[in-house]
């Protein structure tokens, strides 16, 4: 008894030291790649800086005043929200639908599962080039197909006019990222006990009632996580939109990420860009808090 009392704390202390040692590299890397840029951005945002020379002078809150009073930030925030809500909705609808479909048949599942992942694994640059070719107003397959089917009379300028450009971007985003939803939902579907469906059948529930009363409640938690994660990722999406429309026509698909990029490297205003990015980060913080709250509750 006495022996264990003296030994346990010593053991615990050495475990604690080992713990600190093991976690140290993570903290170091985290500081280097997250904390430092974050602090640097906040620091830069109170200067007016010319990007090529990185020289400038202190301007205090001037960049933030412009953010709040100017049109650019609010326009881009609106664009970002439309893009995020639009593409996320389609991702969820197609993702859940496809997962339910794949869940039906085991043989079909293993084959289709790998095919469905294809857009997700495809490099964005390659994917976007293909889509730009499909969307092209002069030689694009999309216009050709739709005209053949008699849906269009004249070729449509898909990416160069509104609202087509936004619709196009949203569609490509949904196509690219819905596999993530499929995989996550499919994994959850496979863990729903078969007995629940059988009990529901005996209780007189038809296929639709079984979906609402058994499947959906079981998917609820995973859907919350998917929606929040995808919302965060879609909100800060850059390459797909940049490559597809470059933010155009004019600024109608210019999301916040693109605005920051444009400000920093198009207009060479690094300080203003830093202020925009801090503003963007504050908006994202809202998502983060909801996410942490939701996932924290489960555990």
């Amino acid at each position: 008894m006495i022996a264990t009392q003296t030994i346990t704390p010593r053991l615990e202390r050495s475990y604690a030291r080992l713990g600190v040692l093991l976690i140290a590299p993570t903290i170091l890397v985290f500081s280097l790649v997250i904390v430092y840029p974050l602090l640097a951005a906040i620091y830069l945002s109170v200067f007016s800086i010319y990007t090529p020379t990185l020289e400038g002078n202190f301007v205090g809150a001037a960049n933030y005043v412009k953010l709040l009073t100017g049109k650019a930030f609010w326009n881009s925030l609106g664009v970002t929200l439309i893009w995020t809500v639009g593409t996320l909705t389609l991702q969820i609808v197609f993702g859940v639908g496809m997962a339910l479909l794949l869940h039906q048949n085991i043989w079909f599942r293993s084959l289709a599962r790998s095919l469905v992942l294809f857009p997700y694994f495809l490099s964005t640059v390659v994917a976007v080039l293909v889509w730009r070719w499909l969307f092209n107003d002069l030689y694009g397959a999309m216009n050709h197909g739709l005209m053949q089917l008699g849906i269009l009379d004249l070729p449509l300028d898909w990416l160069g006019s509104m609202p087509n450009a936004m619709i196009g971007v949203i569609l490509v985003g949904a196509w690219k990222y819905f596999p993530f939803v499929v995989i996550a939902v499919l994994a959850r579907l496979q863990t729903i006990p078969e007995h629940l469906y059988e009990a529901a059948k005996i209780d007189g529930a038809g296929p639709i009632a079984r979906f609402w009363d058994v499947t959906l409640p079981q998917l609820r938690n995973v859907l919350v996580v998917i929606v929040l994660l995808r919302a965060i990722w879609d909100f800060k999406e850059f390459d797909l939109i940049y490559l597809l429309t470059g933010g155009g026509p004019v600024t109608s698909t210019q999301t916040l990420s693109l605005l920051v990029y444009q400000e920093a490297f198009g207009l060479n205003q690094m300080g203003q860009a830093a202020a925009y990015s801090v503003g963007m980060m504050l908006v994202m913080l809202v998502f983060m808090v909801v996410y942490i709250r939701k996932t924290g509750k489960e555990g």
Binding site: H195, E198, A199, K201, I202, D203, D213, P217
Partner: peptide
């Protein structure tokens, strides 16, 4: 659902 039977499962299968 139309057989007028009820079943109790080993796993209970409660919703």
């Amino acid at each position: 659902g139309k057989r007028d039977i009820a079943m109790v499962f080993q796993s209970y299968a409660l919703y």
